[in-house]
Write a protein that binds this DNA or RNA. Structure first.
Length: 106
DNA sequence: ATTTTGACAAAAA
DNA sequence: ATTTTTGCCAAAA
């Protein structure tokens, strides 16, 4: 299985209304340093594969740069639709929404 | 086939 | 504290 597939599989485990960081997924995927690759995986975001790429945020709860998701801030809208509060800085409160995927509080 | 690049993050300077 | 390198894997060139 490719690294991407693993990442997608993990992303699918993220509960609704919860978020995970790129680094977190990389860690869970077996390569703690491959956070960047996770970004690549999310970027390709296989449409129709049921991968909630909008629930993956940066280490600081930062959302993907504007326009990278789509014409508009779809990520923000999708997250808000799930009940995730977004700060004016376009960030999410990781302390509250971070997914408990057996992470050890890096 | 090889080189470049990217929705990141952490270590080194 | 901030700025620069390094690591990582797959896709696109």
């Amino acid at each position: 299985m490719n690294f991407y597939q693993t990442v997608y599989a993990l992303a699918r485990q993220i509960p609704r209304g919860r978020v995970a960081t790129y680094g977190q997924l990389a860690f869970l995927a077996g390569s703690p340093r491959a956070s960047r690759v996770v970004g690549g995986a999310m970027r390709r975001c296989p449409a129709g594969a049921g991968v909630p790429c909008h629930r993956v945020v940066g280490r600081d709860g930062r959302l993907a740069p504007e326009g990278t998701f789509g014409p508009l801030d779809e990520q923000r809208l999708l997250l808000e639709a799930e009940g995730v509060e977004i700060t004016p800085d376009r960030r999410v409160d990781l302390q509250r929404y971070r997914w408990d995927g057996t992470l050890k509080t890096e």
